[in-house]
Amino acid sequence: MNSQTVNVSTGPVQISKQVQKAFAASPISHRSKEFRHLYNDSTEFLCERFNAQKTYLLSGSGTVANEAMIWQIKLLGGKGLILSNGEFGERLIRQASRASLQFIEYALAWGEVFELQTLENEIEKNKIEWILFCHCETSTGVLNDFDSITEICVRNNCRCFVDCMSTIGTVPLDLSRVAMATASSGKGLASIPGLAIIFCNNTVVSSEQIPVYFDLGMYDKKDGIPFTLSSNLLKALQISARQKLQSNQFELIDEYAGSCFDLLKEKCLLSFNESRSKVFTVVQPGNTSTDLVVGLRQKNIIVSHESEYLKLRKWFQLAFFGYYKEVQLDRVFKTLQKVLNCPI
């Protein structure tokens, strides 16, 4: 990547120079007072911005955050319902199965929309005590109806657990009505990958029956830091969250993501998406998608196309997860126009 490259992939994402500098600094001990201040400042800020009672940080990817959340569901017990309409809903089902959770599935074809009345009927009929779903199904870009699903959960006294990997930092989000939600440092918060984030509004359970690294009760006993955590990753996240969660960033990204959405929709390249989403899955038969990826890459625009599920279907994705300046997003839009042979 050179200085002219603009990253509109699903991750790693476009980061600021300040985040790069923090990551390159000399590390400090996770047992030091300086680290404790950094940790408290970062987690308190995230709690405040997303209206959560507590935030846990673990070393690892978003999948690690989901593992920790799933083990908490297991300890809380009860019969659950897992929603799936894409690659990452299916992954939640696989993770839950390995943890031997008791649940049923509401599974649809990729990109289809959950029928809310059917969902509520399933909860009532099966005496469901918890629900697990992806807010944004990243594989297609479909936004599942967070507000309505959480409202159904509240109405039915049902705990709500949500994978928010592609919405934390990309859309306004209030987590006050969920039991837990997960995120990652390397997506919408525009930092370096490597920190798994768990937002929590219920009392966590500790047990020797689950892997110690996923035991959030252990984190409580050790004031959040039972194991090594990278000071570089934490400092980078502290900086990036404050940069990204600004109204001017939301407004800038909304404007240009909306313009790119309209352009792709006009060319009939989007089968799943809605303009509110910040990840657009480009679907076109034949090898045209490959040609478009090459055309964008030649102009130093980085998109996602190497994930197994994308390669299998010859899809690619544009995602506005990073931290951007207007000149960068303007270049993305104009380059997309050229590659699609649109008049400028």
Rank of each mutant, 00 (worst) to 15 (best):
K244M: 14
N300T: 03
T140V: 12
D215K: 00
N201H: 06
A109M: 08
A257H: 13
D145F: 06
D41C: 15
I104A: 05
C268H: 10
Y323W: 08
G80Y: 06
F321G: 00
G186E: 06
R297A: 13
F214I: 02
R276Q: 10
R155Q: 14
I225G: 00
T335Y: 14
Q337S: 14
G258Y: 14
A190M: 10
E87I: 05
S191W: 15
E251C: 07
V19Q: 03
W315D: 07
P27A: 11
S16V: 13
C153I: 05
F321L: 10
L81N: 02
P172L: 15
C136F: 11
E326L: 07
K33Q: 12
E274Y: 09
L38H: 06
S148E: 14
S206D: 04
F250G: 01
M69S: 00
R49N: 07
S191C: 14
A183E: 02
I123F: 10
I149Y: 11
N7V: 07
M180F: 02
V6Y: 04
V205F: 07
L189P: 01
N7T: 07
N273L: 15
K244H: 07
I239K: 03
L189K: 01
V6P: 00
S231P: 01
D163G: 02
G295V: 08
N7Q: 05
Q246S: 14
L234H: 01
L245Y: 03
S277C: 08
Q18W: 08
N7P: 02
F161H: 01
L83I: 03
I82Y: 03
F146L: 09
D220F: 06
T203E: 13
F280C: 03
F227G: 03
K311P: 03
Y219N: 00
D220A: 03
Y324K: 08
I168F: 10
V6G: 06
A107Y: 13
C260D: 08
N40C: 09
S271F: 11
D215T: 01
Q328L: 12
W110L: 07
Y323P: 00
T167A: 04
F35D: 01
K21T: 09
Y256E: 10
G89Q: 12
E129V: 13
L108K: 02
Q284E: 13
T118G: 12
E87S: 09
G286E: 15
L81H: 04
W71S: 04
Q337R: 13
K125Y: 11
S231T: 00
I152S: 02
R36Q: 08
T140A: 14
Y219F: 15
L216I: 05
D223C: 12
Q117S: 15
L245N: 02
I15P: 00
F161K: 00
K221N: 06
Q95Y: 12
S289E: 12
M218A: 10
E124Y: 10
F133G: 01
